[in-house]
């Protein structure tokens, strides 16, 4: 990170490494199930293996284009102000995922909407909370009662005898 944000140069490299890593993992997974060409056509891992190889190759080209070509050196990927507003959006989502795992989607939704509205829109606590609860209740009516599809529930719902 430089003084005015993350450079696009480093993000290009990071993304190329990420996709290359996925490619390697796919080659390895394919190699485990066999990558040959049998008398009755390609093996289970034949296509995935070469797909993996192409991903790695493409990623290497992307990496070299960036490093050797000195591309995007001076471009800014994300400056500090944008990073802040992005973090305000993404962090509640991460929290949402974790809380939902522990306490179920209803509690997760309520808390998430509450904090997201607070952090992003600076709404009053009571308005944010009311919205969160309202949305959870809507979900419950819609999914559990109308469509009869169960959402993930946690200890709180179980305490109320809702499964």
């Amino acid at each position: 990170m430089t003084h005015n944000g993350i450079s696009r140069y480093s993000m290009e490299i990071a993304t190329a490494l990420l996709t290359g890593g996925i490619g390697l993992a796919i080659c390895y997974g394919a190699w485990q199930v066999g990558t040959g060409w049998t008398p009755s056509g390609p093996d289970s891992g034949y296509f995935p293996f070469w797909i993996g190889v192409l991903i790695v190759a493409g990623s290497v080209v992307n990496l070299l284009r960036t490093i050797v070509g000195h591309r995007h050196k001076d471009e800014i990927f994300l400056d500090a102000a944008r990073l802040k507003s992005l973090a305000r959006f993404v962090l509640p989502i991460l929290g949402f995922a974790v809380v939902s795992l522990l306490l179920g989607l209803y509690v997760g939704t309520t808390l998430y909407v509450l904090f997201a509205m607070r952090l992003q829109g600076h709404y009053a606590w009571w308005r944010s909370l009311a919205s969160g609860v309202a949305i959870s209740v809507c979900f419950y009516l819609l999914f559990e009662l109308v469509f009869q599809v169960p959402l993930l529930k946690g200890p709180l719902e179980h305490a109320f005898g809702i499964y």
């Binding site: 939704t109 909407v113 979900f139």
Partner: peptide, 17 residues
């Protein structure tokens, strides 16, 4: 700031379903 979180919540319930 209201519709964004609602969309995220709808997406999460959708993914779970």
């Amino acid at each position: 700031a209201i519709i964004g979180p609602v969309i995220v919540a709808v997406i999460f319930t959708g993914v779970y379903q």
